[in-house]
Design a protein around this nucleic acid. Structure first.
Lengths: 191, 191
DNA sequence: CTCTAGTGGAACGGAGGTGTTCCACTTCAG
DNA sequence: CTGAAGTGGAACACCTCCGTTCCACTAGAG
């Protein structure tokens, strides 16, 4: 991945990467010709930037991980109550858009940085949940890995809801935050 | 689909169908040879029962729909409070096992009987949610289609949790019910 | 034993995706 | 104009999967 690309080359490379995220999110087995078409680029050009399919997948993984890290950083997981931080994280991740589909339908694609279904999920995430358990904003019966699963599955459901149906982004985000909030809150009645 | 199959033929056909549900759930683009191998059957035999891939997919759709309908019937959606019925439905659907993966990763596969992301989702489901809204057991801010999305995404998350990691089926089911219950319950505090 | 049902392996042609090469086109700088 | 950069199309060999055919094998019924 040449760092020194400028102008047209950098723009074309980025267009291909974004198209790849969109198309592979819809169908992880998509043909390269589909990705090229989505990027409004010839298949020849695609091969010029990413000689083999695996090269493209690697670049997609890098781009996806970068976007994910940026979103995680924006959420400032170590500020406020545990539950507040979790909801902030949902809001940030929701902005990842079609990348959510890719992460969810092809969890392996991000390589080592797979956020979903990691047994010992992300350290920052676990720390946030632990804080929530201690400060009483997150139900102690719900362990961190399960909450990770929960969050990701709802993010994917929300994004599908927006993209496949014509639902409003804001409306769906509020529904999502409401349900996640309710799901993690400690029970008021014992049952 | 010959109704009159008995003994060996019926057994082989069923083995192929179950294997197809498992394998296609993991990877909707799986090759027929993989499905045959999973069913411990030669590729020739598979073609004998399902001449073309589309024939197999149709049969999988029929089998999946049948299992889904049976589970829905078992949940007796029109009994008890709305929330209770929803949780019963979750418990029944959770038993669908690997079929959950298939339904979730390839929503089109069930054809007309697609339960996920249907704009006007299942009538019985909507009626149940409406009842919950009226009897005060389901948050009125949460519309039926969103609750359908919510339920399916959590079912998939739960099933992945069980199958990809070694989690206990019962434990995960209880976590799932707890979070769904919390998500749909009307809020106690206004916010 | 013989006959049959059910099966699996080998092999083939066809279709589609992949990776490569070559050439023509456009755009822009000099 | 000339040359270089960037691009797209056409064609090719290669591979995998698919659908088919043919033949050999096994198990059970008679």
């Amino acid at each position: 991945m040449p760092e020194n690309e400028r102008g047209a080359r950098a723009r074309t490379r980025q267009a291909i990467l974004s198209a790849a995220i969109d198309v592979l999110g819809q169908n992880p087995a998509a043909a390269l010709s589909e990705i090229a078409a989505a990027a409004e680029v010839g298949r020849t050009t695609l091969h010029r930037y990413f000689p083999e399919r695996s090269d493209l997948l690697r670049a997609v993984a890098a781009e996806g991980s970068a976007r994910l890290d940026r979103a995680t950083a924006s959420a400032k997981l170590n500020e406020g109550s545990g539950a507040d931080a979790l909801l902030r994280l949902c809001r940030e991740y929701f902005d990842l858009g079609s990348l959510l589909s890719l992460i969810f339908t092809d969890p392996e694609c991000l390589g080592g940085a797979t956020p979903i279904l990691d047994d010992g999920c992300d350290d920052r995430f676990s720390a946030m949940i632990d804080r929530g358990h201690r400060d009483g904003t997150i139900d102690v019966a719900l362990p961190a890995p399960w909450l990770s699963s929960l969050m990701w599955s709802q993010l994917y459901a929300g994004w599908s809801y927006v993209s496949h149906q014509g639902a409003s982004r804001h409306e769906v985000l509020e529904l999502l935050v409401r349900t996640v909030d309710g799901a993690v809150a400690p029970r008021t009645t014992t049952g």
